[in-house]
Measured scan of single mutants.
Amino acid sequence: LDMDCLPYGWEEAYTADGIKYFINHVTQTTSWIHPVMSVLNLSRSE
């Protein structure tokens, strides 16, 4: 699993305190969880 590779439309950013988060420019949303990890967690719960 390549954690450096973000899906299309996603960008890694940091808060003023240096905390990493992710921006989805396609849906105009943000997430604290890496988008690949959130997809993996969803697929495990099914």
Rank of each mutant, 00 (worst) to 15 (best):
H25G: 05
M3F: 12
I23Q: 03
D17A: 05
N24K: 00
Y21R: 00
E12H: 03
A16V: 07
S31K: 09
M3E: 14
V36P: 07
G9L: 06
M37N: 15
Y21P: 04
I33S: 13
H25N: 15
K20S: 02
V26E: 13
I23A: 04
N41Q: 08
L1H: 10
I19A: 15
I19N: 15
A13L: 04
E46S: 07
G9K: 03
G18M: 02
I33T: 12
S38I: 02
S31N: 00
K20Q: 01
H34M: 04
P7Q: 01
W10R: 02
S31F: 04
L40I: 03
V39M: 11
I19H: 15
V26P: 08
I33R: 08
P35M: 03
I19Y: 13
E46M: 00
D17E: 10
D17P: 02
P35K: 08
V36F: 09
T30W: 09
L6R: 06
S45L: 08
W10Y: 04
N24A: 10
T29G: 04
D2K: 10
Q28Y: 01
T30H: 04
W10G: 05
G9H: 02
I33E: 15
S38Q: 05
Y14R: 09
L1G: 08
Q28E: 08
I23S: 08
L40F: 10
D4A: 07
M37A: 14
R44T: 10
P7Y: 04
S31L: 03
H25L: 01
D4S: 11
E46C: 15
T30S: 15
V36N: 15
T15V: 02
I19M: 15
Y14W: 10
Y8H: 12
I23L: 07
H25K: 14
S38A: 06
G9Y: 03
M37W: 05
T27F: 13
D17F: 00
Y8D: 15
F22G: 04
T27W: 11
N24C: 03
P7F: 07
S45D: 12
N41Y: 06
P35G: 03
T30K: 05
M3D: 12
S38R: 09
V39R: 12
G9W: 05
H25P: 11
C5W: 08
W32P: 07
L42N: 15
G9V: 05
V36K: 15
V26F: 10
T30C: 12
A13I: 00
A16E: 12
I33A: 11
E46W: 00
R44M: 10
I23R: 11
D2I: 05
W10F: 03
A13M: 02
L40T: 10
T30E: 02
L42S: 14
T15W: 03
L40H: 13
C5E: 14
T30G: 06
L40A: 12
W10L: 02
Y14N: 00
H25C: 03
P7M: 03
T27G: 11
N41I: 03
S38D: 13
C5V: 11
T15N: 03
T30P: 02
K20L: 03
C5L: 09
I33D: 15
Q28T: 03
G18L: 01
T30M: 01
A16P: 10
S38F: 08
L42K: 14
E11C: 02
S43V: 09
S43D: 14
M37Q: 15
W32F: 07
E11D: 08
A16R: 06
W32G: 06
D17K: 07
H34P: 11
D4Y: 02
Y8K: 14
A16I: 05
A16K: 14
H25V: 06
Q28D: 09
A13E: 01
Y8A: 14
P7A: 06
L6I: 00
N24F: 02
V36Y: 11
A16G: 09
E11F: 07
C5Q: 13
L6A: 05
T27C: 13
E11I: 08
C5N: 11
V26D: 12
M3S: 14
N24P: 02
S31Q: 05
K20R: 11
Q28L: 00
A16F: 04
H25I: 04
K20D: 04
T29N: 04
W10H: 05
A16C: 07
W32D: 07
M3V: 13
W32H: 00
L40R: 13
V39L: 09
C5P: 10
Y14L: 05
N41S: 11
T29R: 07
N24I: 00
I23K: 10
H34K: 05
W10N: 07
Y21I: 01
W32R: 09
N41F: 00
S45H: 09
R44E: 15
D17H: 05
S38E: 05
G9R: 02
S38M: 06
G9M: 02
D2R: 07
P35N: 02
T15S: 06
Y8V: 13
M3N: 15
L6F: 07
I19C: 15
Y8P: 14
W32E: 06
W10P: 04
A13P: 01
E11N: 03
L6E: 07
R44A: 12
S31C: 05
V36C: 15
T27K: 12
V26W: 02
A13H: 00
D4G: 10
Y21D: 00
P7V: 04
D4I: 06
I19R: 15
E12L: 03
T29V: 15
F22M: 09
N24E: 05
H34F: 00
T29E: 09
V39H: 11
L1E: 13
P35Y: 10
S31P: 03
L6D: 09
S31G: 09
G18D: 07
D4M: 01
T30V: 05
Y14C: 07
Y8G: 13
N41P: 09
E12V: 14
E46Q: 13
Y8C: 09
D17W: 02
I33H: 12
Q28K: 13
G18V: 02
N24W: 07
T15K: 00
W10S: 03
D2S: 09
W32S: 06
T15F: 01
E12C: 08
Q28W: 05
S45R: 11
D2A: 09
T30N: 05
L6N: 09
L42F: 10
Y14S: 09
G9N: 02
A13F: 00
I19T: 14
I19P: 04
W10V: 06
F22W: 11
D4C: 10
I19D: 15
W10D: 06
H34R: 08
A13Q: 06
K20H: 09
R44V: 11
S43N: 14
D2C: 05
T27S: 10
K20T: 04
E11K: 08
A16Y: 07
L42A: 12
E12D: 01
